[in-house]
């Protein structure tokens, strides 16, 4: 009787969450997988075609060109975010953990952009970048830096980086806080004794702090990886669904959305291609995250 009651209670707490996850995550995941194995005529599922849709994405013009272009941009997102955003996050986290003057204020200031809506920030930064009325243009003109006045979002060589910069501004507070929390957990006595031995600051960081915050670095790396593969809103707000100009800012996210649901220019939705892309995005996220975690686990040290 008691056991039955307990089971009912457990079910009571699990079922609502599980049903929600099943409906919004598990079902669409398997539906996409299934859909990607079929031919589609508009919104009607036709015959089973096996891996043909994946073959189309990888080998047929223009799908292959768009796919590899998009994945190249996702890679730019990952590398830039790792190198710039997370390095600054680490630096800021370290400075804050050393309790520099005004650290409490800095902590809040750094984190504030993280709380803002990405859509709002995207639109605002698009206005800042405007080559005619934009804030940046006015700023550069005031500073006399006319060489900086260009169409940052309209030039294929700078557009993706201009969007990444916005994201770095918005998101650096997050790794900063995660690294700070990890560094605050490094035992004070280790650092103090090293300090008394006259160990330079850099060696202390590199030999004591860094190895002890590997789990935090792993978490941030995996989150950056997933964020970089899934990037969508940032491009959507600043360069539209077509990844203007000429797909220079296109990512797997916008390519998937455009393929599945169409857009002003590409028009014809192709559920088959969209579903295949969503499966590819999922496999990339899962596979690379697991590899990452396995890689980092080997480097972890414990006191």
């Amino acid at each position: 009787m008691n056991n039955k009651g307990q089971t009912l209670w457990i079910l009571f707490f699990i079922v609502p969450g599980l049903s929600l996850v099943s409906i919004v995550i598990i079902y669409p995941l398997f539906a996409s997988l299934l859909n990607s194995f079929y031919a589609w005529d508009g919104f009607t599922r036709m015959e089973f075609v096996g891996l043909q849709n994946f073959k189309t994405v990888f080998t047929q013009y223009p799908y292959n060109e768009r796919f590899f272009n998009a994945i190249g941009n996702n890679l730019k997102w990952f590398i830039s975010s790792m190198v710039i955003q997370n390095t600054f996050g680490l630096l800021f986290g370290y400075l804050l953990s050393r309790r520099i003057k005004g650290h409490e204020i800095y902590k809040r200031v750094f984190f504030m952009p993280v709380l803002l809506s990405i859509i709002a920030v995207g639109f605002l930064w698009k206005l800042y970048y405007n080559p005619q009325f934009g804030l940046f243009m006015k700023l550069f003109t005031a500073l006399g830096w006319d060489f900086m006045n260009r169409a940052w979002l309209g030039d294929s060589s700078t557009a993706t980086y201009a969007i990444i910069l916005m994201n770095i501004w918005r998101w650096t507070g997050f790794p900063t806080l995660v690294f700070l929390a990890a560094m605050d957990n490094v035992p004070e006595e280790c650092l103090e004794s090293a300090h008394m031995d006259g160990t330079p600051e850099w060696t202390m960081f590199w030999k004591i702090t860094f190895p002890l915050i590997i789990p935090a670095i792993m978490v941030i790396t995996v989150l950056t990886l997933i964020g970089s593969i899934n990037v969508f809103e940032q491009v959507y707000t600043m360069a539209d669904l077509d990844g203007a100009p000429n797909y220079a800012t296109d990512t797997l996210g916008t390519l998937f959305y455009r393929s599945a649901f169409g857009s002003q220019a590409s028009t014809v939705p192709e559920i088959s291609i969209g579903s295949s892309l969503s499966v590819i995005i999922y496999v990339l996220c899962l596979g690379l995250s697991v590899l990452n975690i396995l890689g980092f686990q080997k480097k972890e040290v414990q006191l």
């Binding site: 077509d242 100009p245 000429n246 220019a265 028009t267 192709e270």
Partner: peptide, 17 residues
């Protein structure tokens, strides 16, 4: 797909850029 519009639109952006 690929629609003539999507081809000419991206093509013109590449030309102007």
């Amino acid at each position: 797909q690929p629609s003539g519009s999507s081809l000419i639109q991206s093509g013109l952006q590449a030309l102007f850029g």
